[in-house]
Computed example of a mutant assay.
Amino acid sequence: MKSLFIRLVFALLLIQNIPLVVQAKEIKYNHGSLTISEIKRKVDFKVVVPENTPSDWTLEIKTYPWGEKNKITNFNLHYMDSDDKYLLIDIEQSKEASNKEMNINAERVEINGHKGYFVEWGNCGELDKKGEIITGGLLRWKQEGTYVEMYSSRVSRKQMFEVARSMK
């Protein structure tokens, strides 16, 4: 009995020290959009993608110039609700440009070690035409050579920052 107990303890210690394989969350794309891996091959800047989004969100990627297949200059990650009814977060990315104005009477924040700016919508807390409370705002920063703008009127500032800080 004692030897069985020792074997169990040894097995538990062994299992505990084996690194677990973590599988990335599968992204649910909608409307036949390009995928993240396809976008990475078609832009000349680093694509940063959130690792922390709710599992029921879907993603549609809009590319610009519109209709361009090979030389995409910027794109938007449209994170939608599970019914594809509401745009929850829009994340626009382009090559970092020195002429893009960052400080727009905004609160200075830090995103992944980079200086950024956040502006709450002027009508935050009010009801929109559909009777839903407006929340969120505009968050801007530059990360690894990429200019990023995140917009939301349906997701709270806190959740926007959680998503932004998970972007790698």
Rank of each mutant, 00 (worst) to 15 (best):
K2N: 13
K2L: 14
F5Q: 13
I6G: 06
L8T: 12
V9Q: 04
V9W: 06
F10S: 10
A11T: 14
A11Y: 11
L13Q: 05
L14A: 10
Q16W: 15
N17Q: 10
L20W: 05
V22K: 07
A24C: 04
K28G: 03
H31C: 03
S33H: 01
L34T: 05
L34Q: 04
I36R: 06
I36V: 15
S37L: 12
I39F: 00
R41L: 11
K42I: 00
K42G: 00
V43Y: 00
V47N: 01
V47I: 12
V47W: 02
V48M: 00
N52P: 01
T53P: 00
P54R: 11
S55A: 12
W57R: 07
T58Y: 03
L59E: 03
E60C: 09
E60H: 14
K62F: 09
T63M: 07
P65T: 00
G67C: 02
K69Y: 00
K69M: 03
K69N: 05
N70K: 11
K71A: 01
K71R: 08
T73F: 02
N76E: 15
H78F: 12
M80Q: 13
S82Y: 08
D83C: 02
D84P: 10
L88C: 03
I89V: 15
I91Q: 09
Q93Y: 02
K95A: 03
S98A: 13
S98H: 10
E101K: 15
N105K: 11
A106W: 09
E107A: 13
R108L: 10
V109A: 09
N112G: 01
G122V: 08
G122F: 09
N123G: 06
N123F: 07
N123A: 07
G125D: 07
E126I: 05
E126N: 11
K129L: 11
K130T: 12
K130Y: 15
I134P: 12
G137A: 14
L138T: 15
L138A: 12
R140L: 13
W141G: 01
K142D: 15
E144P: 09
E144S: 14
G145L: 00
V148I: 13
E149N: 15
S156V: 08
K158G: 08
K158P: 06
E162A: 12
V163E: 04
R165N: 15
K168M: 03
